[in-house]
C-alpha cells in the first residue's frame, strides 16, 4: 500500500468574492521510504499542497489517503490523532519560544497525553539523534537557525511518525547548514524508514536528497518522476527553469546567446572521457561551452553543460547523435540559459 496518495486534489479559495484556484487536479503517489520532493516557484501552490497532506488545508475536491485511510472520512478527533502521527517542520522552525529545547521536544507527547517521564526519555533519545545533546536546557533564542531546525526535527519525530513533511525547511538557512540538515534528513530516512516529503523552491535540495520529484507550476502538476530522469531530461518549462537555477546564476548568460544550444548531462562513467575535445577533433568544428556545472544527484556526481553548436544543421545533428552514442542525455535548449 502506498504511504500517501493524493487523488485529483483541487483547492479553491474565495478572496473578496473572487475565486482563486490554488491547486487543480493534482495526482501524486508517494511510496513508503521515499524522499519525495515537491518543487515550484513561490506562489505555485506547493505550501497548500503539503498542508493538504495532513489536512491543515481541507481540499475543495479530491482525496488524500494516508496508508489507505481517506482523511475526509475521519472525525475531528480521529483526524487529530492522524495528524499526531505525521511529523511536520517549517521554514521558520515554529518552536515555542518560552519553552526550552527539551520541553519543545516533549510538547507533541504532552499533546497526545504521554507520561511526563517517558516523554523526557524519548526527548533525550531524539536529541542524541539530531546531535544536540548539550543543548537540552537552552531556549530557542539561544540557538542558531540550524540548531533550531534540528530541534524542530526532533520534535516532529517525537511521536514516532511514519511521515515527515518539510515545508521549505532549509529556505531560511545558509548553504552549509542546509547541507547538514539535508544529510540529517537522509540519515533519518535511512535509519528509521520514515517517508519524507520536501517542499522547496531550490532544485539543489531536490537533487541532493530526493529520489522522486513533482514539479508544480501555477497550481498544476506539470512533471513527475525520478529525480535522475527529470534532471537529465526535463520536459516542462517550469522544470527547465528550476534546473537552470536562475536564482544561483552569477553571470548573465543572455550575452553569450547563440542560435543553437544543447544541454548535455553526463554521469560518472562518461566523465572520464574527454568528450568535448573528441567532438571538436572528430567534426573539426568549434563548440562553445556556455555553462558547466557538476551537481550531486542522489549521491552521484553529475555533470551538466550547455553548449553552443555550429550553425550548420547537418553538423548539429551528427554531433548530437555522437553525444547520445556516448551515453549522454542531450536536450535542445530554446530559452535563454
Amino acid at each position: 500500500m502506498s504511504e500517501i496518495v493524493i487523488k485529483n486534489l483541487t483547492k479553491r479559495y474565495e478572496i473578496r468574492g473572487n475565486e482563486v484556484i490554488a491547486l487543480s487536479g493534482i495526482n501524486i503517489t508517494i511510496e513508503k521510504g521515499d524522499i519525495y520532493g515537491i518543487i515550484g516557484m513561490s506562489g505555485a501552490g506547493k505550501s497548500t499542497l503539503v498542508r493538504s497532506i495532513n489536512f491543515l488545508e481541507k481540499p475543495t475536491e479530491g482525496q488524500v489517503l494516508i496508508e489507505g485511510v481517506d482523511l475526509a472520512e475521519l472525525s475531528e478527533k480521529q483526524l487529530r490523532k492522524k495528524r499526531s502521527e505525521i511529523g511536520m517542520i517549517f521554514q521558520n522552525f515554529n518552536l515555542l519560544e518560552q519553552k526550552n529545547v527539551l520541553e519543545n521536544i516533549c510538547f507533541p507527547l504532552e499533546i497526545t497525553g504521554s507520561k511526563k517521564r517517558e516523554a523526557r526519555e524519548r526527548a533525550k533519545e531524539l536529541l542524541h539523534l539530531v546531535h544536540l545533546e548539550d543543548k537540552e536546557r537552552a531556549y530557542p533564542s539561544q540557538l542558531s537557525g540550524g540548531q533550531k531546525q534540528r530541534v524542530a526535527i526532533a520534535r516532529a519525530l517525537a511521536t514516532n511518525p511514519n511521515i515527515l513533511l518539510c515545508d521549505e525547511a532549509t529556505s531560511a538557512l545558509d548553504p552549509q547548514t542546509t547541507a547538514a540538515i539535508l544529510s540529517l534528513l537522509r540519515e533519518i530516512n535511512e535509519k528509521l524508514g520514515i517517508t519524507i516529503v520536501i517542499i522547496t523552491h531550490q532544485m539543489s535540495v531536490v537533487t541532493e536528497i530526493c529520489n522522486k520529484v513533482a514539479v508544480i507550476d501555477n497550481g498544476r502538476l506539470v512533471e513527475e518522476g525520478y529525480v535522475k530522469d527529470i534532471f537529465e531530461n526535463p520536459k516542462s518549462d517550469a522544470a527547465k527553469v528550476l534546473i537552470s537555477g536562475k536564482e544561483i546564476r552569477f553571470t548573465p548568460l543572455e550575452h553569450l546567446d547563440s542560435s543553437y544550444k544543447v544541454r548535455i548531462v553526463f554521469g560518472e562513467n562518461s566523465a572520464y572521457e574527454p568528450i568535448i575535445s573528441n567532438v571538436i577533433l572528430k567534426f573539426q568544428a568549434p563548440v562553445n561551452i556556455l555553462k558547466a556545472d557538476t551537481r550531486n544527484v542522489n549521491g552521484r556526481a553529475v555533470g551538466e553543460m550547455i553548449l553552443s553548436l555550429p550553425d550548420e544543421e547537418e553538423l548539429q545533428q551528427s554531433i548530437i547523435t555522437y553525444l547520445r552514442e556516448k551515453g549522454l542525455a542531450v536536450t535542445e535548449v530554446t530559452e535563454h540559459v
Binding site: N54, L56, R80, K81, K82, R83, S84, E85, I86, M88, F90, N92, N94, L95, L96, E97, Q98, K99, F107, P108, E110, I111, T112, T159, L165
Partner: peptide
C-alpha cells in the same frame, strides 16, 4: 506567532490545548 499555532495543529492539538498549552504560555 501564527506559525507556532499551525505547528501545534499539525501535532494534532485541539483548540482547547492550543489555548492553554500554546497561547497562554507563549
Amino acid at each position: 506567532d501564527g506559525g507556532v499555532i499551525e505547528a501545534a495543529r499539525a501535532m494534532g492539538a485541539s483548540n482547547l490545548q492550543i489555548v492553554f498549552k500554546v497561547l497562554l504560555v507563549e
